[in-house]
Write a protein that binds this DNA or RNA. Structure first.
Lengths: 276, 276
DNA sequence: TGCAAATGTGTTATTATGACGCAATGTAAT
DNA sequence: ATTACATTGCGTCATAATAACACATTTGCA
């Protein structure tokens, strides 16, 4: 979502004149073709990565703004929403070729860009239907993905935008209800951990059991017993032990593993704990 | 969603003149105030009930149509979507005071009412923006609820509409992608069965273990062992055994139980199978 | 009266889980 | 080199959960 507050207007305008290709222009482009986009509906993406034994989230900051936001955008009328999610993520971050999973839709009445003041709209020459289109309540569909931190290098669509991996425990204030959206994504991920294996997309090709355990502990926000974790995770049958140890580590070198792709997919289909 | 095909037009028109308060009028009312509704966005409800040891779904049939549909409708701009879901269900079925849970959002490009032919729109005097508003792609948010079959007596908003409880295994052809929506709701319900207790809203005050088991078997589409089911379900600690047996039954009279409301809620919060 | 069908209450073997013990491996300080 | 220490790998044990099954009880009905 695009948010421009009154007090940021001058900064944005200066920036606009300098760069010639920034958020504001992107916004104008969309507004000029607003009939090609689904009205009052947007998509926001929660992209999780794992690095330094920490769960990271991909966030975007518009220059001269204090608050960050999730990468999001509008829905082309000629795209299924699942396709639009990929489009949106790619347009905002350059990230492509990943599987996005819908997890919830957010539609509080207050979900509009209240920061679009009359002055801002006039300054940006947004009037009438366009202004109405932009300032109405936007319902947003949340998608999340788990990606390989090292292989996913975000590229801002506009040079003056900042995209960063931020530790999920150190996420600053976010615009609108993006904090709630992020929280819901994490809760969904936490639930899914009980139903299916997780890690294939989050960890590098080769990894150690302690690394995988840290991932689980981070997502669950809970300490697990080393020995029981090893037994349980290996019993699932999705891991292949390599004849190779991790190098350049303090203390005893841990063994390296890979995921058995076939068995992993099989377990994904059937689920872990059937319960009944 | 309102669907009127070319060949049904005459029937609908006749009906309109007779009843004076039907689907078409409802549609007109909405279109006259279409700015009060979220554009291109709707809500569809999947209401589950349980009766005669069968899982039932609440479906609506418009007169002179062959296909049924889920109870759905549009979203007032001044209501949170969760509130709008309750509003929509109440307006279409008269059912009120139940908890609706969002489970997925559906937004294929083809999700529009293709049956609105030019002739139909002209006949109904729907032109310009109104026609555009109505015929665009509608993204729909799916909500589901579990209700007490005997206490939930649907009342059609229009006298010529038919609302019926239909066995989930005998659901006929539905409009648009409503079959897919129903399937997803059932899949969600099936998954939730592994995470939390189910039955509080679906069964009457007093019920028997075999009845509860039938409910589980119906949702899971799987046979369960009587004795193991009893042990597992009682171990959860949400049941209170009554000093009373079911009367007027063939064979041995089964014992009656109630849910321990407090413990039930407690388990709902914490979940069943933590997994990790 | 006896049978069929359903319920109530076990038993047993197997597996999964949680809470530990202890040796092996490597770094770093003395 | 020796020692301390953190971390990994492998194993034990008591308990709980699960799957499969046996048997007695209750009730309607032929």
């Amino acid at each position: 979502m695009f948010v421009i507050s009154k007090n940021e207007l001058n900064c944005v305008l200066n920036q606009y004149q300098k760069s010639g290709f920034n958020k504001t222009k992107m916004l104008k482009d969309i507004l000029e073709n607003y009939e090609n986009y689904q009205p009052g509906l947007s998509i926001d993406c929660v992209i999780f990565g794992f690095h330094d034994n920490q769960l990271k989230v991909l966030l975007i900051k518009i220059p001269h703004r204090e608050t960050w936001s999730l990468p999001g955008g509008f829905i082309p009328v000629n795209q299924d929403i699942d396709v639009a999610a990929v489009t949106v993520l790619n347009e905002r971050t350059g990230v492509d070729g990943i599987f996005l999973r819908q997890f919830a839709t957010f539609g509080k009445v207050k979900r509009n860009d209240q920061h679009f003041s009359k002055e801002a709209l006039e300054y940006l020459e947004i009037f009438e239907e366009k202004a109405k289109w932009l300032t109405r309540r936007f319902v947003t569909i949340g998608y999340y993905a788990l990606v390989d931190f090292l292989k996913t290098i975000p590229k801002p669509a506009n040079k003056d935008e900042i995209i960063e991996w931020i530790d999920h425990k150190e996420v600053p204030e976010l615009i609108l209800d993006h904090k709630e959206i992020l929280g819901k994504a994490l809760a969904t991920l936490r639930m899914e951990l009980n139903l299916m294996p997780v890690g294939y997309n989050l960890l590098p090709e080769k990894f150690t059991i302690p690394e995988l355990q840290k991932l689980y502990e981070t997502i669950l926000d809970k300490k697990l017993d080393r020995r029981n974790f090893l037994r349980k995770i290996t019993n699932i049958g999705i891991l292949t032990k390599l004849d190779e140890k991790k190098s350049n580590v303090a203390h005893k070198a841990p063994n390296l593993y890979t995921f058995d792709k076939d068995k992993y997919k099989e377990v994904l289909k059937n689920g872990l704990n059937q319960g009944w």
